[in-house]
Design a binder for these strands. Structure first.
Length: 873
DNA sequence: CTCGTCACG
DNA sequence: ACGTACGTGACGAGA
């Protein structure tokens, strides 16, 4: 059977653009700043459509020129807003894409895409083809027949509804042949087709069910009573015109025949280079067809432990890991390169060579790497201490642009125009299919990575210098990497007895609550399903929904539940259930699964991930262990020192972000208050409210503004926080800024500079690029402004604690202390300290932290000691 | 794989 | 007219 696919190009293109122009973010762009979001959505949809079997295919487009519908009706499609420039720019990209796919791409002056599709579908039907039409335009439904299915794009880019004669009848209550009559009666505001005023879908369907066609309705117009009959009689001409406008032309004089649009081979080489140019790497991976270039890559596979005489200083050493988590991952092998000759060393061969071991661990032999923290830590688990790393591709690319290092090795390379490297996914596969290919395939891949590191090193160092980032790279990120590796490898011990006790206790409370909830609402359901819960609360119990999620579902989050707390006895039970299941699944079970055979958890601190320069913690995340509620805080009892007679010592910066702001913006009032060791929120309250004594309510409000300032405050959000009207909140902010005028100036200049330069910087010159500032969308630009205000503050605080960690680690090293840094939680450090060093560390840790950098304000750090993490403060 | 939710600074 | 503070990670549900 022959199968023809017809795609309404305009319709898909519009959908693709608007489905990916998220209100919360920046439009997708490639490296050159070309917008690609609509292309991305379009490719996604076409990709999905073309997964089926078919023999013929065509994508039809409208033209800009007028059609006979415009001649018949001046206002046809009038009132449509013009296409945004960001969207129009992407039209040529769509055509290039279709060209590479080798798909017929057709438009004809005087006709719309609908007409082309209609004409071809008719011809195909006559020849016994099966036809599938893809569009979001319901006009096309008139083409439905036993051989023609219309696939309507519902929402987003992949939700599609298939309409056949039977499903059409079921859905609309009329026959598909009556579609045009329906349009004629009800009109279509999107095309500005008038229809009969006052007649909507319901009435139109009723009329057609009675009379069958528009012509019959008009013939019997006299017998239709009341207002409806009046309207029909008055607007007969409009209805006839509308029917003509809505009727698809099935006799377009096409300049080709069906045989010319038979399916052809995709031009994969052209498509891959197009995707590369557009930075749509995900599609290249999806093709799963690496370009078959003649491989002229020359490298050696080292077979034996006595073949290591090629080792010399300044080579790239790449360790290829099988999994993301380098604590547990297998090593696949080593790639080495001096820039001229490239090598692959299988794991066993490398680890059996004394020469190679000495090479890796000799601090006087410089080596270049991709991710030294991963490599150093992976080697620690095997008993080797990697030394002498002078270059780290991951860290240097992260400093150059905060987004690059989140990507594949290949994408990092391509950001610096180095192309000769493949995606890991295409070598090893992904998901369930992941595994090792033939030795020659992965050996070459690994050796190529080593080569890439040698080629990129001078380029990236030059770039770091150009951006004034060398100092940050050399004195902060590189040394910090070693500190973090030690912390991760040290790990933190978990008290399994405590864990099991809490586990049992939580489980029985959850089980009991579950039964009570079922009893309270009179049925069983999945309490953990927001969808099912919303159904119970807002339909069965009839409670008032107060908020919707961003996808327009009814929200059941804690704010909503709190407003309903005395409306039904089940609400407090659900709140408690939520809290306990969170503790149980994320913390109890989550931590339990992460415990290593040594009885500890070993997190990974991602050093090249966040937009601001903060660290993040993974598998498990030890930066979000509960503390705000007493119930949650109990979880901290799970974490204990790993040896007898050891204690935890923690030290945290007091108000580091406000101090950073006071320094960077040179805020006289704040600097004075901090240096006098005043309570900063009380001081702010005194000034803002102009009183000597401050109530706790006033202090709370002042605190909210102090926080708000750091985030790029808005009156509306502040008003929510301090429970006033937005107007009062705005007055409050104005008063605040008049008391600390330097803050206002600083924020304004920061945003201006960000708009001018495209980025903001921290104290240590770390950059964050803020593309959102160029967005055509108001809300996105506003987000960009808030980010511009916040990033220098959050990022500088991150710089400072990183410096403190390096200093503290150096102190421990130099004085041969047994104390170990275990965790960093943004403004806090946690150490494990033997009893004998307790007094010293209680003094030294806060001291080093407060002296990490010299600012216009003093940095202060408090210190706590305990037998487990819970006891700290 | 995305969404909603909720844990932290 | 717009949408509602900055930065993160992990879980279960549901497609």
């Amino acid at each position: 059977m022959q199968k023809l696919i017809l795609i309404d190009g305009n319709s898909l293109f519009f959908r693709a653009y608007y489905a990916t122009a998220y209100a919360g973010g920046d439009l997708m762009k490639n490296k050159q700043g070309v917008y690609t979001n609509a292309l991305f959505g379009f490719v996604n949809m076409v990709d999905k459509i073309l997964q089926q079997d078919y023999t013929h295919v065509l994508v039809a487009f409208d033209t800009k020129e007028k059609t006979k519908r415009h001649e018949a009706f001046d206002d046809y499609k009038a009132g449509r807003p013009p296409m945004p420039a960001e969207m129009a720019q992407q039209i040529p990209l769509i055509h290039s894409y279709l060209k590479h796919l080798n798909i017929a791409d057709y438009s004809l002056v005087g006709y719309e895409a609908d007409d082309i599709i209609g004409t071809l579908s008719k011809e195909a039907c006559n020849r016994g083809f099966e036809v599938s039409v893809y569009s979001s335009d319901r006009d096309l439904l008139q083409l439905i027949s036993d051989n023609v299915t219309i696939h309507l794009l519902k929402k987003g880019v992949t939700d599609i509804e298939d309409l056949t004669p039977a499903s059409f009848l079921e859905k609309y209550g009329i026959n598909h042949t009556q579609m045009i009559d329906l349009k004629a009666l009800m009109g279509d505001p999107s095309d500005n087709i008038p229809g009969v005023p006052g007649v909507g879908e319901k009435t139109a369907v009723k009329l057609l069910q009675t009379y069958g066609t528009l012509e019959e309705v008009l013939a019997k117009k006299a017998e239709i009573s009341g207002k409806l009959g009046e309207r029909i009689r008055e607007n007969e001409d409009k209805a006839i015109l509308s029917k003509m406008l809505a009727t698809i032309d099935l006799a377009v004089p096409l300049e080709f025949s069906l045989d010319d649009i038979a399916r052809k081979e995709t031009d994969y080489d052209a498509l891959v280079s197009f995707y590369n140019e557009m930075d749509l790497h995900v599609f290249i991976k999806r093709l799963n067809k690496p370009v078959q270039k003649p491989s002229n890559f020359d490298y050696k596979i080292i077979q034996d432990h006595d073949e290591f005489d090629f080792l010399k200083p300044n080579m790239a050493v790449h360790i290829e890991l099988a999994d993301f988590n380098y604590h547990t991952s297998d090593i696949i092998g080593f790639g080495l390169s001096d820039g001229q000759t490239h090598y692959f060393v299988p794991k066993e061969v490398g680890l059996a060579s004394i020469d190679f071991q000495l090479y890796l661990t000799d601090p006087s032999i410089p080596k270049l790497t991709y991710d030294q923290k991963a490599f150093r830590t992976a080697l620690k688990w095997l008993g080797y201490d990697l030394k002498g790393v002078t270059f780290d591709l991951l860290l240097s690319s992260y400093l150059i642009h905060q987004k690059i290092a989140k990507e594949d090795f290949k994408v990092i390379c391509m950001a610096f125009e180095y192309e000769d490297i493949e995606y890991d996914e295409l070598i090893y596969g992904k998901g369930a299919k992941k595994g090792l290919p033939a030795l020659e395939v992965y050996a070459a891949h690994v050796a190529k990575k080593a080569k890439a590191i040698t080629v990129l090193q001078p380029i990236l160092l030059e770039k770091l210098k150009e951006l004034d980032l060398l100092e940050l790279y050399e004195t902060i990120e590189m040394p910090l990497s070693t500190v973090l590796s030690d912390m991760e490898y040290s790990g933190i011990a978990v008290d399994k007895n405590e864990l099991n006790q809490q586990k049992t206790a939580l489980k029985s409370r959850i089980d009991a609550l579950e039964q009570n909830i079922y009893a309270s609402v009179g049925k069983t359901f999945n309490i953990g399903s927001p969808k099912q819960l919303a159904e119970i609360l807002f339909v069965d119990l009839g409670l008032d929904p107060s908020k919707k999620t961003k996808t327009k579902n009814l929200s059941t989050n804690v704010d909503v539940l709190n407003t309903l707390i005395d409306k039904h006895p089940v609400i407090p039970m659900i709140l408690e259930y939520r809290q306990l299941t969170k503790l149980y699944s994320t913390y109890i079970e989550g931590i339990e699964q992460s415990i290593f055979p040594d009885g500890k958890v070993h997190t990974i601190f991602a050093q090249a991930l966040t937009a601001t320069g903060r660290l993040s913690s993974l598998e498990p995340n030890l930066q979000n262990i509960p503390i705000r509620t007493e119930e949650g805080r109990q979880i901290r009892k799970l974490f204990v020192p790993s040896k007898p007679n050891h204690y935890f010592v923690s030290a945290d910066y007091s108000q580091i972000e406000l101090r950073v702001l006071a320094d960077m913006a040179n805020v006289k009032g704040l600097i004075e208050a901090f240096n006098n060791h005043e309570d900063i929120h009380t001081r702010t309250a005194k000034e803002v409210f102009g009183t000597e004594t401050v109530t706790s309510e006033e202090r709370r409000k002042a605190k909210a503004v102090n926080f708000g300032i750091i985030y790029g405050i808005g009156a509306w959000s502040l008003s929510e926080d301090i429970h006033t009207t937005p107007r009062e909140a705005q007055a409050f902010i104005d008063k605040y800024l008049s008391i600390y005028p330097e803050i206002k100036t600083y924020m304004e200049t920061t945003v201006e500079n960000a708009i001018k330069q495209g980025y903001v910087t921290t104290m240590m010159k770390r950059r964050r690029y803020i593309g959102e500032l160029e967005s055509p969308i108001y809300a996105v630009r506003e987000f960009g402004k808030r980010t511009s205000m916040n990033a220098p503050i959050q990022g500088s605080a991150a710089d400072i604690i990183k410096k403190a960690m390096i200093d503290l680690h150096a102190y421990i090293d130099k004085n041969k202390k047994k104390s170990r840094i275990l965790l960093q939680v943004h403004d806090e450090l946690v150490l494990e300290v033997p009893e004998a060093e307790l007094a010293e560390m209680q003094k030294v840790v806060p001291d080093i932290m407060s002296k990490a950098v010299k600012l216009k304000v003093q940095l202060e750090s408090s210190c706590d000691t305990g037998k487990n993490w819970y006891e700290l403060k």
